[in-house]
C-alpha cells in the first residue's frame, strides 16, 4: 500500500507535487459586481480573493447609483474554469452583493481603461512622443518645455502598447485606473 517504505525511527522528506496541474487551462474573466456602497464592502471582496487564494489582475470600484447607494466593482481575474465558477458563487454569498455578472461569458462586452503617462524629453524624442500620442488618440493634459502628461483610454492591451512605445522616449511614470467594463447591447 505504501509508496515509500518508511522504517521506524527514520527521517524522510515529504515529497509532494508543487506544480500546478491546471497551469495550462487558466482563463481570464471580467466580473462586474453590484454591491451596496457601505463601509467595508470592498474589504469583503478583496478579503475573499486573498483568503481563498484567487487572483486579481485589476480592480476598479466607484458608486454608480447615488440614490440607491450602489457601487459597481469590476474585477479582472484569472483561474481555471472551476475556480472562476467558485469565485462567482463565493462573491454571491457576500451579503451586500446584489448581482454578479461574468462579462466574459454573458455575451459581448466592452472594456476600457484610462491611463496617465508622464514622458519627459527634448528634441526628436519629444516630437516622436507627441506624434505617437496622436496615433493612439492620446490627449496632452499637461505640458512643460521638457515633458508631457498624456491621457489615453482604451483596452488594457492598447495601453500596454502605448507605454511600451513611450518607455524609450522618456516615460517617467504612469498611472492606470484598471478596467471598467459593460456588456454590449440594449440590456
Amino acid at each position: 500500500m505504501a509508496a515509500l517504505n518508511i522504517k521506524k525511527g527514520s527521517t524522510r522528506k515529504s515529497a509532494y507535487e508543487l506544480r500546478d496541474p491546471n497551469a495550462e487551462i487558466y482563463e481570464r474573466h471580467t466580473l462586474a459586481v453590484l454591491v451596496d456602497n457601505e463601509a467595508g464592502v470592498l474589504a469583503r471582496v478583496i478579503g475573499l480573493f486573498s483568503g481563498r487564494g484567487y487572483n486579481i489582475e485589476s480592480l476598479t470600484v466607484a458608486e454608480v447609483d447615488h440614490t440607491g447607494h450602489m457601487s459597481r466593482i469590476t474585477i479582472v481575474t484569472t483561474g481555471t474554469p472551476a475556480v472562476i465558477e467558485q469565485i462567482k458563487a463565493q462573491l454571491g454569498r457576500i451579503v451586500p452583493v446584489h448581482e454578479v455578472h461574468d462579462l466574459t461569458v454573458e455575451g459581448a462586452s466592452v472594456e476600457r481603461e484610462l491611463a496617465l503617462c508622464k514622458v519627459s524629453g527634448t528634441g526628436d524624442k519629444r516630437v516622436e512622443a507627441l506624434r505617437l500620442a496622436d496615433i493612439f488618440r492620446a490627449n496632452v493634459v499637461d505640458s512643460t518645455l521638457e515633458s508631457f502628461v498624456f491621457e489615453i483610454t482604451g483596452t488594457p492591451e492598447k495601453i500596454d502598447a502605448f507605454t511600451d512605445l513611450m518607455r524609450p522616449l522618456g516615460l517617467v511614470e504612469s498611472a492606470r485606473t484598471g478596467v471598467a467594463a459593460l456588456s454590449r447591447g440594449a440590456q
Binding site: A3, L4, A15, Y16
Partner: peptide, 26 residues
C-alpha cells in the same frame, strides 16, 4: 490514511507501518 481512497482503509488489526504514502504525508 491521508492521500488514500475509500477502499484502502486500515482496519484495527491491519499492519499500520508505512500506512501513509509520501504524498499523503503532507
Amino acid at each position: 490514511p491521508s492521500g488514500e481512497p475509500h477502499n484502502k482503509m486500515l482496519l484495527g488489526d491491519a499492519s499500520t507501518d508505512d500506512a501513509i504514502g509520501s504524498s499523503g504525508a503532507v
